[in-house]
Design a protein around this nucleic acid. Structure first.
Lengths: 261, 261
DNA sequence: CGGAACGTTGAGGAGAATCAATTATAGTGG
DNA sequence: CCACTATAATTGATTCTCCTCAACGTTCCG
């Protein structure tokens, strides 16, 4: 509560509990995470490609892209992080980043040192499990994005991305699937879908014609969600939002204590 | 040793210990994993898209592709698994698959029930951590593949894939980076790179001209590895093979016991 | 108010897909 | 062992999606 990041941490806890079971002790431990607030200006890379990091970045507000780069500098965003997401959670167990993080708009971060997260993960196996599962969710998104950029047409690609973000923004109470603030440029959309900015523009126009989807003033409006989902061949299951999985480590831990004593 | 899968488990342990520190107790626990051997014929899907699973598939021999599908059935492979890889480790904490697994050649699996893996992960925090980190490594590959299929030309894409597999096969003692058995068809290569089989064929021809790379009798030969790596813009850091990371959970666990007693 | 970033549109070109046919290879059963 | 078949590799011709280059309008922000 004292923390200025309380709201973002609350979102993060909700993100975790949507996929994992946490005890109230565990939730409290997460709420107690110490870190510091940092403002990032738009289009600043705040984690450089290939640099080791010693803290994680919880997105409080704004939009963050994880990206890789071609030799000539052309970028491909591999995942987008919105408020409540821990953008580089994976760095807790693998501190050398082979990727970069960039603010796609003015962004507020809560930087949490690895040692903080490691501490609560070690004290609470349930948290370690939830973090592990959270990394799986990220990986599942990467994997779906491979399919998206590898095999789908431009209209389908963009529609799919918009559908994913619609669901995710809805989940963190920043709008709903028919209308949400999405502070990204067409260049950014192109970097996320493997298209050029020009072709992204044409594709958006085509989606506007086909389905009435508009992206105006950084706000996406989707009049007919089912239609867009159909155009985007979107099925939300890869987001792993279908309820918390049964705990495995903590449960088994109890079992193992019974065996030992 | 009694297990027919001993060699594959040994490879898996090596995969884990190349990124994580395990005690000999922990290694023993992994070696003791009970499962059953299963033969899969070439081109058989053995994990269906969207099906829940209750076991993991350790590849003993052969080649496995994780794939997603377009509505019309066109496939995109999002990761390849070779001997010693646990193809669907993520299902341990997230049992509903949003993807499928397919044998790209005749393949031998060691099917290990989730409960087995959960048991040893709960008893040995170091194993849980190593498995978590292993999932990060998979995610890192997915992420790199997004860049590969999203932003690179066909020649670069194929070269990058060949480089990745060269390093990985070398790691599991199935050849070296200049020559390794890679039992995949050109159609499979296309599904992995987001290209058609026809264009994959032309691309391979071009790589053969440029750099002498040949793919004959399911064997890849790379006369000039550095040149291919350059064509493929390949940097191996995303494979997370640069030595085991310091343990965090087990180490902190000791710390926390000290605090408590 | 002025400059920079962003969005939009047009024209032309390149790379990959598609369609189609032929050759090679591997696996199968008689 | 060999014909038979299916799968895989190869090549050519054509089409189409998306990129590139370029210009101009618009919005944002200091």
């Amino acid at each position: 509560m004292g923390s200025p990041a309380a709201a973002a941490i609350e979102l993060f806890v909700r993100r975790l509990t949507s996929r994992s079971v946490l005890t109230s002790d565990e939730e409290d431990a997460i709420h107690g995470l110490k870190g510091e607030v940092q403002q990032i200006v738009s289009h600043r890379d705040f984690v450089q490609l290939g640099q080791p990091v010693d803290h994680c970045c919880l997105v409080m507000d704004g939009l963050v892209g994880r990206f890789g780069q071609r030799r000539d500098g052309a970028r491909q965003i591999t995942c987008l992080y919105i408020p409540g997401d821990l953008a580089d959670l994976s760095s807790v167990v693998s501190p050398k980043s082979a990727w970069g993080l960039s603010a796609l708009t003015g962004t507020t971060l809560y930087r949490v040192p690895h040692v903080e997260i490691r501490r609560i993960a070690a004290l609470h196996p349930g948290i370690a499990e939830a973090l592990w599962r959270d990394c799986i969710a990220d990986g599942s998104i990467f994997s779906e994005w491979v399919v998206n950029v590898g095999r789908r047409s431009s209209a389908t690609r963009v529609a799919h991305l918009l559908c994913e973000m619609a669901i995710r923004y809805e989940r963190c109470d920043r709008g709903n699937r028919n209308s949400f603030a999405f502070p990204i440029t067409q260049l950014g959309l192109g970097d996320a879908t493997g298209l050029t900015a020009v072709h992204t523009n044409r594709t958006l126009k085509s989606l506007r014609m086909q389905s009435g989807v508009t992206v105006r003033d950084k706000t996406v409006t989707i009049p007919d969600w089912n239609q867009l989902a159909s155009i985007g061949e979107f099925k939300a299951d890869y987001l792993l939002f279908d309820g918390p999985a049964p705990p495995i480590i903590r449960m088994a831990k109890i079992l193992s204590s019974e065996l030992h004593y």
